[in-house]
Every structure is written in structure tokens, then in C-alpha cells.
Design a protein around this nucleic acid. Sequence first.
DNA 1: TCGAAAACTTGTAGCGCTACAAAAATTTTG
DNA 2: CAAAATTTTTGTAGCGCTACAAGTTTTCGA
Lengths: 334, 334
Amino acid sequence: MSDTPSISPKSLTMQDVADAAGVSPMTVSNCFRYPERVREKTRMAVMKIAADLGYVPNLSAGTLAAGSSRVIGAVLPSMRNSSFYNYNSGLRQAAAARGLELITMIAETPEEELSAVQTLLGLRVAGVALVAGPHEPGLSQLLALAGVPVVESWAGEDAIGRGVCYDVGAASRALTRHLIAQGRRRIGFVEVTGGGGQRYAMRLPAFRQEMFAAGLSDSLVLTVRAADGFASGATILDSFLALEPNLDAILCPTDVVAAGALFECQRRGLAVPGDIAVAGWGDYDIGRQVSPMLTTVRPFSDEIGKGAIEVLTGDHEGSGAVATPFALQLRESA
Amino acid sequence: MSDTPSISPKSLTMQDVADAAGVSPMTVSNCFRYPERVREKTRMAVMKIAADLGYVPNLSAGTLAAGSSRVIGAVLPSMRNSSFYNYNSGLRQAAAARGLELITMIAETPEEELSAVQTLLGLRVAGVALVAGPHEPGLSQLLALAGVPVVESWAGEDAIGRGVCYDVGAASRALTRHLIAQGRRRIGFVEVTGGGGQRYAMRLPAFRQEMFAAGLSDSLVLTVRAADGFASGATILDSFLALEPNLDAILCPTDVVAAGALFECQRRGLAVPGDIAVAGWGDYDIGRQVSPMLTTVRPFSDEIGKGAIEVLTGDHEGSGAVATPFALQLRESA
DNA sequence: TCGAAAACTTGTAGCGCTACAAAAATTTTG
DNA sequence: CAAAATTTTTGTAGCGCTACAAGTTTTCGA
């Protein structure tokens, strides 16, 4: 009774499991890595013992010995955004379907991103999934030197590694056309320059193109450094109405901003979509829950994640950026 | 000209850097791991060469050789929630302050959580940060056998490893007292049983205690399996009004639900806080952006993350759950 | 029942790095 | 300026696992 059951937390090794199971370490290794190589009966016995002992294979040793790992590393710029939630889900599911694990690192700044990538490379991950945005100068070269598969989501031809993205320009054109077809003439567009804005750089040119094609003025453009939260939606509406009191539509950078603008419209007694159409972007939860529900662009971010894993595992033929679908989500607000 | 500069992406080793720098591999190792052990001049030279070559130390090998790593693993139940965003930020910052890296895994279900923990243990992380919620049965034992430091955030005395949490009961009591002090008498309480509901198990008993102490009825309790999104706020308000048409306050499980309830009140022409007080929980962005702004409980989730890292690194004296602060955020809605 | 083919199992030889102790270089002291 | 004290640098010996090729056992057809 005085024996201390687990006084030494000395970690179990494959050898311990092998001894307990009466097989060689290699068989234990095969059980975990290539189950089909081991006879069912043997495998069951080994796995049972491993589970009883609480043995978890040391991935560090495995990665070192094998020279490769079964882990994909993703770096996200932020967790606030529900797009990234869906993106991460897509990554995770696609990775799981291929027997890969996904680890995620959050990086708020380019420096943090670089540091995160270094950790991931240090772990010798099987692939790195980045998100488009401002990067630290050395990042691209670091990844190139490491020779690891890289994918940059929401990026196009100029991506680090290969880009995976839906056609933002096409989505912007479709949304603009939709408003024009509704008879909107004085359409305001919000351009975001800071932070993740560059993921959506194609929105404005596409908007202008369609406005021009319809013979409308594309001068109602508001450029802001950042826009998040309802408050900025209110501010933006303010600014637009000061610019053009007869504004009849507004294209917001996200559903959250659109919701803020919508609330501000309601506060001012402007009917949506009667007096003014409000369009969001991104198909966030909130767009479905405000009234009127927001017309928006649905990015299928989980498909971007899936595409990213396919690129990393080499399942994607061809070259150039991978295009994922998007959809115009026409609801009540525009 | 026919030589291929980097035909073989054979990864660089410490030896390569050592050769290029004219020092021994150990010196290179020390430069990365214990910079203060190496003379400044030598270190600069080595780091310069390492950077030029694009060398990144193989953490797998390092972890294997050293028997420990400088990486903390966190498992989050979801990224949707802004609390977890702040929690993760707190983890990251506190980890960075101690020279540790943080890797995050998202797990939607207990099975995924178990699998994530196995990967983390396989990586031989220096600590595992869990979030309270339903766990797979084997999880606790697995972690105990691994002998790795574990912390469970939002958990109390019964935590796996050590708990870090604010006093949910005290927060609930404070909020209830606040409503009572306002003269509210028919207060509805929403109890969530599913998902993360158990993180807030102490809310209901605390509510009842205060209602009883004030001589009020605590029977206006609605139990739902899950509540997220504005829509459930509307549903909940519906149900309460059916139960008690003279309801004068409602305690919602989150600010999102509270916002939904608030919108429903406005739709029905009920004045908030005039006719009915609406209180949220969690201090989400949205609570600050609706009008009237929501009274809520602010959890300082980043402090929970910070506390979790402190526990994992052994910086926290004593035993028992670690208490983090909370604050009653009194705003307009209650 | 026997031999060949197929299926399964097992040594061997590192993977790249770090703890540790010992050696070398440098600085300080008498 | 030599000896002692201190700071820097360097071999050695694995960490736990897996690729690979070489056994060993089982299965199967004749």
C-alpha cells in the first residue's frame, strides 16, 4: 500500500507497450501508423494494451524518424470573424478525412504571423495554410526555403504558395448588378484599406466597372481604414447621407457593418429596403437574424478550407489559384 | 550554370549552420535555446548565418532530445464565441511573455476534443489548456497518465487538472440583486442545459438564492437545451410572456440571446428598460452596440487565459481553483 | 501433405537535437 | 607575467520512433 502507483511520470515508450504485448516495437509502430499492415488480432491486443497503459505515441520522435509529419498548420489572423470559423472547420474536416491533424495558431500582426510560421516549420508540419493579408517581408522566402507546401487562402495569383479563393470581383459585380437591376441609382460603396481589406481589393474595381457599364456614377465611395462593429455601420451611413441625401443603396464591407447601418436607418426612419437598400458581405449569422434579413455574399468559407487542404496534399491538379464557389444570398434588405 | 541551386529541399540541420559559421553544433543549439550562454559576437554571427540560410531549428528533434517542449496546447470548443477569442488572446500573451508558443486546436465535440488532446500529448506539449464542458470519459485519465500540467478554464473544484474561473455564482447573485434593487419582481431566468451550459451551472442556484432572500418567486425559470442567436432570444421572450404576461425582467444566458430578446421586446412595443429589464451575460460586442446597451456580466476572459498559463507554468501558488475577476457591467437595459 | 506465395513480424541504423561534463579560451588577480 | 577564476565552447551519448530489408509464419493450391 505504500507503493506509489505513478511516482515517476517517466513517459511510456513504444518499447514498454511492445514488452507488455509481447511483440516488437516495430509492430507497435505499425499498429499506429499503418494499421493495415498488422494482423487484426495482433493489432487489437496491442491497441488494448496501449490504451490501458495510456500510451500516446511521441509525435516528435515519429516526425524526426520519418522525416515528415501528419500535421497541418494553419495561421489565422483573428478569431473574431465567423468566416474564419467556417474556414477553420473546412480545414479541419478535410484534414481529418485524410488522416491529418490540424493545429491552428492565431496571429494578430504580421510579426506574430512570422513567429507562428517559424514554430510550425519547427514542428516540421506537412503543410502551412495562410490567410491573405499583410505579411512580414521575410515570410515568403522563409517558406520557400523550408520547401513545405503552402497555401494562401483568400489570395489570388500572387499568393504565397498557391491561392485559394472565390472570385471576389465576380461577387462584387453580381451584387452591384443586382442593385442596379432593382432600380437603385445612387449607390454608396465602402472601401476598407486596413487589416484584411486587401483580401477584398477586387471589390471596388468590380463595383466601378458595373456602375460605369450602367451609366451610373461611381463616385459615392467612402474609404475607411477599418470597419467593424455596428458602430461603424452607423458612422458610415452618416457620412454617406452627408455626401448624398438621396442615397438609395449602400454596399457594406461585412454583414456586421451592414447591420449597424440598418439599425441606423431604422433609427432615422429610413425604410429598408424601401428607401434604401443595404447589402452586406460574408453571410454572417447576424445577417439572418436582423429584420429585414440582409442580402449578402455567401463565401462558403468552409470550401476555401477544403480547397486549401486539397492543395496542401497535392490533390489539386493544375496550377494557378484555386477557385471556390460563392453565392449571392438575396434576402430582404436589398 | 547547370547546377541546380536548391534541387534537394533536404532540410538544413544544425550541423550545416555550424559548419557555415565555423562553430560546433552545440554552440548553434545554445544560440537558439540559451542565448545568454553564448558570447554576443559569436551569437550574432551564428544567427546571421542561420537567417541567411533560412534555418529553422527542428522542434521535433529538440523536444525529443530535451524531453520537454516550449509549446503549450489549448483546445477550444469553438471559435464562434468572442469570449474564447479573448481567452485565447490571454493565453497567447501570457505564453509569449514566458517564451512559450501557443498552439490551438478547435474541437466541436468531446470526441474531437479527445483526439485533439492526443495530438497535443503526442507533441509532448509543456501544458494543456482545456475549456470546461462535456468531456469524453477517458480524457481525464489520459491526461493524468501523461503527467502533463493541465488546466481547465471555466471550471471549478472538479476540474481536470486545476480550474480557472471567475465566480459565476457571485456574478449571478450580483446581477439578480441589481434587478431586485431596481424594483423588479417578476424576473425570468433562462437555464441552458446543453453544450457549454455546464460552465454556468452555478447561475441558477445563485439566482434562486437571491430571489428567495428577497421573498420573491423563483419559479419563472425556462430550461432550454441550447440558446444561441437572436432567434432564440425572441422565442424565449415569447415563452416567458406566455407564462407571465407581467414579466418585468429577464436574465439571458448570453448577450446575443439578450439582444434577440431586446429586439423582440421592441417589436412588441415593450419598453426596455421601462416595461422590462433585459440582462445579458458575457459582455459581447453586440451588447455595446444595441440600443439600449445591454447590462451584462463582464468575464475578463483574457484574465482566465492568463491565469491558465500561470497555472501551467507553476506560477500559481496554492491549490484549488484559481479565481479571476468579473464585473457587473451596468448599462442601459437593466 | 508439401512447396510456393502471401502475409505478417522484426532487427538495424539512424533522424536532428540537447543535457551534461569536460576542455579551451578569456579575464582577473596577486 | 603566471596562476586562478571565470566565461565560452565543444564532444559524447542518447531521446523515441520509423524506413527498409530481411526474417518468420500463415495460407493456399495441387
